[in-house]
Simulated scan of single mutants.
Amino acid sequence: MRRADHRPSRRAFLDATGALMAAGLTAGCTAESAGSGRHGAPAAPASPAPVPALGRHQAGVALPQPAQGNLLVVVADLGTGVSPGALLAELGAAIRTLTAGTDPRLLGLAPGDLTVTVGVGPRLVRAAGAALPGAADLPGTTDLPRFSRERIAPHERGGDLLLQICASDPLVVPVAAAALLERAGDRVRERWRQSGRRGPNVPVGKDLAAPRNLLGFIDGIVGPHSAAEQRRDLWLAGPPAVAGGTLAVVRRMELDLRRFAALSVAEQEAVFGRRRASGVPLSGGTVAAGPDLGAKTPDGRYLVPADAHARRAHATVVGVGLMLRRSYSIDAPAPGLLFISFQNDLRTFTATLTHMDAADALLGFTTTTASATFLILPGFDRQRALGSGLFAR
């Protein structure tokens, strides 16, 4: 019997080679090259620039600008007997390795522009103030008062610890959160968490952009954007234990989308006091210039209505400083907004909301379902641990 010859024939070789070439060309054909007739490997998406985690201020407040597209907020309590100083120092160390991309708990993901911002609640700030000589009246000791249009469960009001985690890559956010909570272990008990996304960014000034919210309007146009405004209204100047920090207000709000969408565009714009498409005030001008609150129609009506949000929340009208808003749209547990504002005086927020409560047309479409305020700790570095100015380790 003749031995079978296992060497491929010339015809079989050519057929196999042609198949491999066709497969290679197909695999390397991008949507662009398919349309243009050019072949090549798809270009890798540009990685967002890293945001320094160390410095005078924590990342995730004023930087980056614009804010990353994805966020997760975790609010937790510390267990009885837990040392805040030791916990915060460990969290700071974890933030360094996570943002540097050297932490194996990132599971091989590139951190990109990951930021983690840490705050402590009034209970912890009051305890720290009592232990520090001459620091009994630290900023951040006051709880938020209750306002109208709230439906808040007890476990979703207040809290000891805030973790605000933001990144352009949506996969990085929950992975970083899991790593931080694993580091904290059973020393913390989670109260609530909320994820959110930013809408498309719209230019609102020189090197500034703000996103659209679920109501279709640009959110966060006004704020302390310049360095001088941030020194005046955003960052805490003292006492030394908190210098370089700020105060955060976090509120989750449901939005009545159905009722708002039933309004005409003109009626929606009257609620906000701005044009929906452009963000320009109803009084005219540019987006960044702000509304002319004295401008009237020929028959004497205000161009920016008396109950418009742009008027009722205007810092000059209220008599307070500017707040920096870093809000995100949410779709669970209900469509709405995770409102986050940063300011160096809690009255900036409380006086504004009190003034809005009386007549702001926008509030009629909102219901707040979670609320808390936190002292955002000053920045940290390798020699100065997170929270070390306030808490002993």
Rank of each mutant, 00 (worst) to 15 (best):
C166M: 03
R149H: 13
S168I: 06
G134K: 10
A127N: 05
P133C: 08
L124T: 04
L138R: 03
V175D: 02
A178H: 08
T141P: 04
D169T: 10
R146D: 15
G134T: 08
R151V: 08
F147E: 09
L144Q: 04
R157E: 11
G159Y: 03
L180M: 06
S168Y: 01
I165W: 01
L163F: 07
G140P: 14
E156V: 01
T141M: 06
A135L: 11
V173L: 07
L180Y: 04
A178Y: 01
L163R: 00
S168V: 05
L124G: 02
G129D: 11
I152N: 09
A176E: 06
A178V: 10
L132A: 09
I152Q: 07
G159D: 08
E150R: 09
R157K: 05
V175L: 05
P174R: 04
L124D: 04
A135W: 02
A136V: 09
S168P: 01
D160C: 09
G140M: 08
R151S: 15
F147Y: 14
A131Y: 01
L171S: 10
C166I: 00
S148P: 05
T141F: 00
L162F: 11
G159Q: 13
E156T: 13
I152L: 06
V173N: 10
R149D: 11
A179D: 03
P154W: 06
V125L: 09
G129E: 12
P133L: 10
T142F: 00
R149S: 08
D137Q: 07
L161Q: 06
D169V: 11
A130K: 14
A178W: 01
P174H: 03
L161Y: 13
T141E: 05
L161G: 08
S148K: 11
G140D: 13
V173F: 12
H155G: 03
D137F: 00
A135Q: 15
P170M: 10
D137Y: 02
L144F: 03
V173A: 05
C166V: 00
L124E: 01
L138V: 02
S168D: 12
L163N: 04
S168H: 04
